[in-house]
């Protein structure tokens, strides 16, 4: 649901093996970055998946923790799969320092590059809300800094809400993001 640039997303109760692991809830996301933290395995990814599946009126794009770039396609072909606007893709690749990787396949790129490329793919799909699952996981500090630069660039260039989940919330302090915490059993969300 949209209102004054604010996107409200909701999710239902989620069960795993018959046991409720995540309580239903909703979040009003403002343009900019919102971070959901919580312990590993608490249900952060489940919440993102539920948001991606449950809000049919909103175009939400989920960028997975494991970059799901197709390894048999070059980066250019991967991007062309979700958008025909080549110029837009080039612009974002340039901003993210990936312009020289157009002809490379994911297996020829580092994990940090693949993560940024996956975010570019998410952006050119023109989402109303961008969902990022543990974008800093397994990255070294240099790559985390590059990733943050990219997120700052998105926040400045596109006024869309970004909802990211991470169990390492300190990585994202620089973004001055609105913070939420997912905890409890079954997990529920609250503002920090």
């Amino acid at each position: 649901m949209f209102k004054d640039g604010v996107v409200t997303v909701s999710w239902p109760n989620c069960k795993f093996d018959g046991k409720e692991v995540l309580q239903s809830g909703q979040l009003a996301l403002h343009p900019g970055c919102s971070v959901v933290s919580g312990d590993s395995g608490i249900g952060k990814t489940t919440m993102l998946r539920a948001i991606a599946q449950n809000n049919s009126k909103i175009r939400s794009v989920l960028v997975f923790q494991e970059p799901t770039l197709l390894p048999w396609l070059t980066l250019e072909e991967n991007l062309a799969l979700v958008s025909k606007e080549h110029e837009v893709a080039i612009k974002w690749l340039d901003s993210f320092g990936l312009y020289n990787c157009l002809g490379l396949r994911p297996g020829q790129m580092s994990l940090g590059m693949q993560r940024r490329a996956a975010i570019v793919r998410g952006l050119i799909a023109k989402p109303d809300v961008l969902l990022l699952d543990e974008p800093s996981a397994s990255l070294d500090q240099l790559n985390i800094d590059r990733l943050l630069d990219c997120l700052v660039e998105i926040i400045h260039s596109r006024s869309i809400p970004i909802l990211l989940v991470s169990h390492q919330i300190d990585h994202f302090e620089r973004l001055k993001a609105k913070q939420f915490y997912l905890g409890g059993s079954p997990a529920f969300i609250r503002v920090v």
Binding site: P71, R105, G107, Q108, S110, M113, L142
Partner: peptide
Amino acid sequence: YVQRWRSDGQLAQLQV
């Protein structure tokens, strides 16, 4: 030709 991508990977370790 079609499975050339399967040998990708080693280069990635060297790039940042």
